[in-house]
Write a protein that binds this DNA or RNA. Sequence first.
DNA 1: CGTGGAATTGATTACGTTCAATAGATGTGG
DNA 2: CCACATCTATTGAACGTAATCAATTCCACG
Lengths: 227, 227
Amino acid sequence: MKLTKEEKQILADSARKTDTIQKGRDIITQGQRPNEMHLIVEGWACRYKLVEHGEYHITAFLIPGDICDIHTTVLERMDHSIRAVTPVTVIKFPSIEISRILSRHPRLAGALAWTTLVDEAILREWLVNAGTRPADKRLMHIFCEILLRSHIAGLTQDNSFEFPLTQIELGESLGFTDVHISRVLGKLQQEGLVYLANKRITLPDWERAKSFADFDPIYLHCQDITF
Amino acid sequence: MKLTKEEKQILADSARKTDTIQKGRDIITQGQRPNEMHLIVEGWACRYKLVEHGEYHITAFLIPGDICDIHTTVLERMDHSIRAVTPVTVIKFPSIEISRILSRHPRLAGALAWTTLVDEAILREWLVNAGTRPADKRLMHIFCEILLRSHIAGLTQDNSFEFPLTQIELGESLGFTDVHISRVLGKLQQEGLVYLANKRITLPDWERAKSFADFDPIYLHCQDITF
DNA sequence: CGTGGAATTGATTACGTTCAATAGATGTGG
DNA sequence: CCACATCTATTGAACGTAATCAATTCCACG
């Protein structure tokens, strides 16, 4: 879906201001009812939920171009939190402006609905990932997804992308311990499926990566890529 | 969110017709681009995705009152399938009618957005469930969720609800084998946390069930219940 | 240079899978 | 209404993936 110049202008006009969030800080916290919507323009964030013992589970990674919380115009309270994984820059949109847009500009409303549905589709795929795939394929699957999403956001160089996550965070999102992530990641590198250095991931062979991870890009609702 | 009489009428007017789907049949299949939206009025359905070897993973259960596919007005192709778990009766709404409603009736659009966001919240909780909780708690968690959702839909009698799923299907949704479901379910019944008979589940002690499963209803965005 | 978080590696344990066999339930046709 | 087929549930034994506990090493940063 492509926005027209006018539509982009409408969005730009309704933006309030930009803001920067420190690494590790919450952008929004569970239970809040924020009165503005956040669009990430730089850095990585993650959605997470607390579970017993003060542990986390990460349910999504947000990269530049992603919206944190369309929820604000419809739901009362956030049922999860969003945290800055790296320093994050966001543009804020007052909820009132968003409501106005939703009711007056059907095409923009459609665009927002589209991002919501893609978020949902990603969540579904993560659930399948967690429910059916062993550690090595699960890990590769998320690398495939992030490469493709980074590519769409214009953040890739060839078949590599910046990857600021620690193995701990990776574990918290996939449902593994950091110890196990370390072992499996090591194995994947030995097998030449991934190359990781300087907070940057390279997938040397896209087709091999996809087939190893059983990765079908259909759920991202975009074109596949070729390297 | 409560709809007015007029709003309900608008929805009723845009409905095309009802349809019945046999048990085990797809209501919509992955890859399709359906031109109508389905609302379940009777029976259970499930969203599922195929994985390698022809296995399934179930990503959602749909009960009366749930909408199958708001997607149709926005996305091109279904990224997953929906199957009738029992015989299912649906009301169909042509996509064009839905588009019309979305653009002309902001409050109804909001209601549809609300159901989408709750679906997403449920998915998030399922992901946390799969990623962090052991089998017994995971199983109880889904029972808690379904009891509450059934209650909202007016389908409970006291603290019991109809439960047409096989242990195989339960396993396919939680990421366990049917063998393991059988064992864990047996244990939960011995401990008096669940009572299961005639395709009907009873949770004798709601508070105990909730605390055992670490179940926090916030993600369903509705009131909790007391029995 | 020293400190604390992140990553690696090893040894042991445990939760859930797999394979297999049996019993129970449900439905169908003769 | 019984006989047979099929799907579902139960139970047991052996195995395997990932968790846990623990000790080091690596690295970024003040």
